[in-house]
Simulated scan of single mutants.
Amino acid sequence: MRHGKKVNHLSRQTGHRKAMLANMACSLIEHKRIITTVAKAKALKQFVEPLVTKSKEDTTHNRRVCFAYLRSKYAVTDLFRDVAAKVGDRPGGYTRIIKMGNRLGDNADMAMIELVDFNELYNGGKKEEKKGRTRRPKKTAAPVATPAAAPVVEEVAPIVEEAAPIVEEVVETPAAEVVETPVAEVETPEVVEEAPAVAEVEETPADEAPEAPATDEESKEEQA
């Protein structure tokens, strides 16, 4: 049975478990968010938040205590310089765990653990509202009512200015006289149509037609 055992050993020995949590805390302080399993994230939350509380008061003793857990002087420097400036006014709850589903290899529950004040997406660039105890306001003596002074009303006589009517004299100017100028008559040259020339062909009568030259045979008969 596992009654009263609140510490998760994470299947590791004491030295191995402390070294692993120290390395994870250094990575969280440096990168402001890391992704791990849900069980390791819950163990890291319990490991790192007391150290962040120590960093609010910058003393040599607190630096040595944080160095004993983190074992890295660079992580201690970032913790007391950057992280402490952001979480100086926060009373607690410095980290946030966001579940991200199961891992493909062994189906382990994965989660992202981050420092709350360094997430601009959730905070919208503003610091989250602090949730602390509300105290009742102290009772204060009721203020003594003083008689209000009567308001002073000043009567201002209205000033009426009678504006003299402005008469504008309109001078009628005669319209410009239009002078009609005669249009110059343009003499168009006369076009003379020339009849086409017809070639005269002399007709020769049929009786006066030239005789055809005699052939060789006819000339021989005439000589005979």
Rank of each mutant, 00 (worst) to 15 (best):
P182I: 09
K40Q: 07
H9R: 11
P50E: 00
L21G: 04
E180A: 13
A195F: 03
A157D: 14
N119S: 13
V76N: 02
V144R: 15
K131A: 11
T204L: 09
M1K: 10
F118G: 02
S27L: 14
V87M: 04
E194F: 06
D82N: 04
V38I: 11
C66M: 07
K86V: 04
A19C: 07
K220H: 07
N23G: 09
H16N: 10
N123K: 10
E187M: 11
G101T: 03
L21K: 11
T36N: 01
G125L: 08
E168Q: 09
N107I: 01
R64I: 14
E194W: 02
A148R: 08
T181H: 10
G101W: 12
L10D: 05
V192S: 01
L115K: 00
T140L: 12
T204D: 00
G88Y: 05
K32V: 00
H9K: 10
G15A: 13
E128K: 10
P174D: 08
S11V: 05
L79C: 00
D109I: 12
D117W: 01
R63M: 10
D117N: 11
R103A: 10
E155L: 13
R71A: 10
E193I: 10
A43G: 03
I159V: 02
K56I: 06
I35T: 07
Q223H: 07
A85N: 14
A175E: 06
N123G: 11
K32C: 01
A176H: 05
A150W: 05
R90T: 01
K40S: 03
H61W: 06
N23P: 08
L121K: 13
P205S: 07
A197L: 12
H16Y: 06
M20R: 09
N62I: 00
A85I: 00
D207Q: 09
V65E: 08
E177W: 03
P210L: 14
E128C: 04
S27Y: 05
T188W: 02
K45R: 14
A111K: 13
E222L: 15
P174C: 04
P205E: 03
P213D: 15
